[in-house]
């Protein structure tokens, strides 16, 4: 019964993926088009009216949020329930894509693009390569003890509940919505002025990581094996 369901799901996944990607692209285009219009008029300065207008006219946004937020959540839960690592990676792709759409919804177009390129195009591929290189079989499974599974579920649910409680009970400051259009220019300026040092440190870190990864993953390590 279970295995049958899994095979069914197995067949379902490619279908889902083929649906998700176009949906993401489409939604990104919609939100872009929606965001640019008021921003051009609002001259980049956040004001109360603009926010009100954006919120009030956000029925489309609400629909989109629920669709893609649901996608993200569903994919995350899919990761949780998957037993095989390849499937987990596939579900993760759904989550990442949904998050990218949410970025577009939140007016962070640049971040949405980055999310797709880095995660979908880079990290996920890396993970899949990792799976392939480390599995004797791509379908290999390691069963977690059922007791631990239960404990983990309880802890996760409690964590979610407590976080939600905090979020709900907290008094948040007065909300305003930032403009969309000019933010990318402001973003670039900030990144190369105020955050220049972290930026450079991040670049150096990437270099170090590149070397470190190459070093760690290289094939023949006679000396260390001799030591072992």
């Amino acid at each position: 019964m279970v295995s049958k369901g899994r095979t069914k799901l197995n067949r379902l996944l490619p279908t889902c993926l083929s649906l998700v990607l176009p949906a993401v692209l489409m939604c990104g285009g919609i939100t872009m088009a929606q965001g640019t219009t008021p921003d051009a008029m609002g001259s980049g300065v956040p004001h109360f009216d603009g926010v009100q207008k954006s919120v009030s006219g956000g029925i489309v946004e609400a629909i989109l949020f629920y669709i893609f937020g649901g996608t993200v959540l569903a994919a995350a839960i899919g990761v949780c329930v998957s037993k095989r690592v390849v499937r987990m990676a596939t579900w993760l792709f759904g989550t990442l894509g949904g998050v990218a759409v949410l970025y577009f919804l939140l007016g962070a177009n640049y971040l949405g693009v980055i999310q797709l390129i880095v995660y979908a195009g880079g990290t996920l591929i890396l993970l899949v390569f990792g799976v392939m290189l480390t599995s004797k079989s791509p379908w290999v499974r390691f069963e977690c003890p059922r007791g631990e599974m239960v404990v983990a579920s309880v802890v996760s649910i409690l964590l979610f509940a407590s976080l939600t409680t905090v979020l709900v009970t907290a008094e948040w400051p007065a909300q305003s919505q930032s403009a969309d259009g000019v933010r990318i220019a402001e973003f670039g300026k900030e990144l190369l002025t105020t955050y220049l040092v972290p930026f450079e440190v991040a670049s150096v870190m990437l270099l170090v990581v590149m070397i470190a990864a190459a070093y760690l993953a290289r094939q023949d390590r006679d000396d260390s094996e001799g030591a072992n």
């Binding site: 993200v72 959540l73 995350a76 839960i77 990761v79 949780c80 690592v85 987990m88 990676a89 993760l92 989550t95 993970l127 990792g130 799976v131 480390t134 290999v140 390691f142 069963e143 977690c144 631990e148 599974m149 983990a152 579920s153 802890v155 996760s156 649910i157 964590l159 979610f160 976080l163 939600t164 979020l167």
Partner: peptide
């Protein structure tokens, strides 16, 4: 928060190293 909780659950239940990474 929901996604975060899912991530924690995945980390604490998957025995595959790649799964933890996910």
């Amino acid at each position: 928060a929901a996604v975060f909780s899912c991530g924690v659950f995945v980390m604490s239940t998957k025995r595959n190293a790649i799964g933890i990474l996910i």
